[in-house]
């Protein structure tokens, strides 16, 4: 990835929801979200296997930040975009998507792309599709 790091630069990410998840996000299937290039290494519910997550709190210094990845996108969507807060657990839990939610990064299964640790690039397309609704 390219790491030109002017702190005012933002990533524009195209996010799509399907399989019923859109209901949690204002009934809109497509969203465009802006994210900073780097984020704090942890949020309150970062993956507990991340060794640095337990010690850090807010106000991370520059070298403690990490490039913005899909985990950061999931946190952002859950904290700032999700409209149905009561049912947030249907989208994300424990710092990642709930099991049964499929994720595609630029139309490719995120399991091929490093899942949450995939570092986002400007203009990336990320789709979240629930498999949890009846068939």
């Amino acid at each position: 990835m390219t790491s030109s790091s002017s702190s005012t630069e933002q990533l524009k990410i195209n996010v799509d929801f399907g399989g019923g998840l859109e209901i949690l996000f204002d009934n809109k299937r497509s969203h465009v979200v802006s994210l900073p290039l780097r984020v704090a290494p942890s949020s309150s519910d970062t993956n507990p296997t991340d060794p640095i997550s337990s010690s850090t709190t807010e106000s991370a210094t520059a070298d403690e930040t990490r490039p913005t990845d899909v985990s950061a996108l999931i946190d952002h969507l859950k904290d700032n975009v999700l409209s149905d807060r009561k049912r947030a657990g249907l989208f994300a839990e424990n710092g990642t998507v709930r099991p049964g939610v499929l994720v595609l990064i630029n139309d490719s299964d995120w399991e091929l792309e490093g899942e949450g640790s995939y570092v986002l690039k400007d203009g990336d397309n990320v789709s979240f599709i629930s498999t949890l609704h009846g068939g």
Binding site: G19, I23, L102, D107, S127, I129, H133, G134, G135
Partner: peptide, 21 residues
């Protein structure tokens, strides 16, 4: 597998309905 069924529908752009009862 459900994952493959949903992926199949996604990549074939099949028209399906998904709302909880």
């Amino acid at each position: 597998y459900e994952k493959e069924i949903v992926m199949y529908a996604y990549f074939k752009k099949l028209d399906y309905f998904s709302t909880e009862c």
